[in-house]
Amino acid sequence: MIEYVTRMFSYPFMVRALAVGLLVSLCAALLGVSLVLKRYSMIGDGLSHVGFGAVAVASALHLAPLAVAVPVVVAAAFLLLLLGESGRLKGDAATAVFSTGALAVGVMVMSVSTGMNADVNNYLFGSILAASRQDVAVSVVLSVLVLILYVFFYEKLFAVTFDETFAKATGMKTGVYNALLAVLTAVVVVLGMRMMGALLISSLIVFPALTAMRLFRSYRSVILGAVAFSLLGFLAGIGISFGWGAPAGASIVVVDMALFGICSFAAWLRRR
């Protein structure tokens, strides 16, 4: 076991993957609790598809993927939020339109420019080899920023999640905090996308929150529980991925699913 872990860390790409992965898992778990409780679970999925489209276009134009994807996905998050508020295109329909549209554009651009190659596979299903040295620097800075903003606005985000009408009536600028939530989510989705894969990143947001909600009953304990489950799922998943050569994203999701199953069973036992 110890030997296995030492061997894992002897590869520089594994160290990079762990650094980025742990930070992104942490941020995703924090935001996930708010998103699940606000019934926005699918927003992560929608944004990741937009991210796929942006990355495809960036690689066709030989630009840095993160530099293109972060602003594009943040803009998409804003648009989804605005559409949801104006009510002309209802939330889930808007997400569906965005995600499938962006996915289609991404696939078109890729097949015309480079052909459907291994890259496409990596973008869709993730790869632990994806993080370059430069990516790591950007990812660490951005996720630390997400973390700081989240902690600073923790109480406000709780108020807006629990009861938006009350928050608004007592003078809080709820629009600002909803926008903050959308922007932070967009950033985390883009950062996690290349390792987890565009099709799987939203599980990083949804599973830890749901698992923690089976077991814990106060908001703070759900948040801390989600963080713990997220980190555990990531570490176990990446270990499996390294050992069996399975894609990292899928391995992590399988572990998350198992944790969710175990905790649901434990909650069921406790209720009896």
């Binding site: 709780f158 009861d163 759900v222």
Partner: peptide
């Protein structure tokens, strides 16, 4: 079915 303690909910009223 919101997971929050009574204390957390009441305290959030002082946010303004």
């Amino acid at each position: 079915d919101f997971p929050a303690s009574v204390w957390e909910v009441v305290l959030s009223g002082t946010q303004n």
